[in-house]
Design a protein around this nucleic acid. Structure first.
Lengths: 141, 141
DNA sequence: TACACTATTGCAACTATGTTGCAAAATGTT
DNA sequence: AACATTTTGCAACATAGTTGCAATAGTGTA
C-alpha cells in the first residue's frame, strides 16, 4: 500500500508528503467516492482543512482523482483509472449513488451511452449519474 | 405573463405573493436554468435571501421547478414541464451546459438514454448533463 | 549529512452558501 | 372587515470553500 501510493505520487511528479499519503490512503481503503468531509473524518485532526482542499485540488489537476457531480450537489472525489493523466481525464463511465447506503461508486465498465443532440448543440463532455440501490445493499436486505 | 403566473400558482395550491410572482417571472423571462444567485440579481433588493431559498424549495416541492446537478456543483433550477406535479417529477430529459455562455438549458426533447446496469444494481433515477457549445453560441461565433 | 532552494502546510481571516427560530406582515376566507 | 393561516424578514448560526503569508518540510546537490 505504502509503496503503491509513493509510486503514484512520483509518477505524478508530486513530492511525497504525509498529507498526500494519508489522503490517498483514504481513497484506496474506501472503494467508493469520498466527499471532503469524509476525508476530513478519515485523516482526523492530523491535517488542516485547507491542506485537504489544496491536496484534493492538486490530485484533480494531476489526474489522480476526478470529481463527480451529484443531484444533491455535494462534491465527491474518486480515484481515476490508470488511463487518466494530468489535464486529460477519461471519465466516461457512469457514476452510481446508492439511495440506501448513500455511497457513490464509479461503474468503470459502464460507458456513458451516446445521445443525439439537437441541431446547433455540440457536446464535449457527458456526465451520467444513476441513483438507486447498489449491489451490496441489494444483497444484504 | 402576470395571469399565466397567477394561474400556475393557483393550480399548485400556493397563495399569490409578490416574491413568488417575481421569482416565477425570472424563470419565464430567462429560458435557461437559474442559480440562486441569478435570481437574487434578478429580483434585486426586493426580497430577502431567505425568502428566495424558501420560495425555490416550495416550487421544487410543488413540481413547478426542478434542480439540475452540474459538474461544478452549483445548484440550478429550471421550470418543469406541465407533466410535473407535486412530489412527482418527470425530468427524464438531458440538461445542457454551455461552456461558452455558461447558461444551462433543458433539452426537453432529448430523453436520457437507457443504460445497462451491472448485476445487483437497480437504477431508479438517471441524470445526464452534457456540456459543450449551445446553439446560440455556435450560431454567433 | 548538510545546505539551499522550492514546494507544501497551518493559521487567520474572509466570502459565499444555506438553515433555523421567531416575531411581524401579508394572504385567503368567511 | 376580522379572523386564522401562510409567508416574510431579521438575526443568528452552520457549513463550504478561498486567499495571503509566514513557518515548515521535502528534494536535489555537493
Amino acid at each position: 500500500m505504502e509503496q503503491k501510493i509513493i509510486d503514484l505520487l512520483k509518477r505524478s511528479n508530486l513530492s511525497i508528503t504525509d498529507s498526500r499519503k494519508k489522503i490517498l490512503e483514504s481513497f484506496f481503503q474506501e472503494n467508493s467516492a469520498l466527499a471532503h468531509a469524509d476525508i476530513e473524518d478519515h485523516v482526523g485532526e492530523d491535517f488542516d482543512r485547507v491542506t485537504i482542499y489544496r491536496t484534493l485540488q492538486t490530485f484533480v489537476d494531476k489526474g489522480i482523482i476526478h470529481t463527480i457531480p451529484t443531484p444533491d450537489n455535494a462534491v465527491l472525489y474518486a480515484l481515476c483509472k490508470d488511463s487518466c493523466s494530468a489535464g486529460h481525464h477519461h471519465d466516461n463511465h457512469v457514476h452510481f449513488i446508492c439511495d440506501n447506503c448513500n455511497k457513490t461508486f464509479c461503474l468503470e465498465h459502464v460507458v456513458v451511452p451516446a445521445v443525439h443532440m439537437p441541431v446547433g448543440f455540440a457536446a464535449s463532455q457527458i456526465d451520467m449519474v444513476v441513483s438507486g440501490i447498489c449491489n451490496y445493499c441489494n444483497a444484504t436486505t
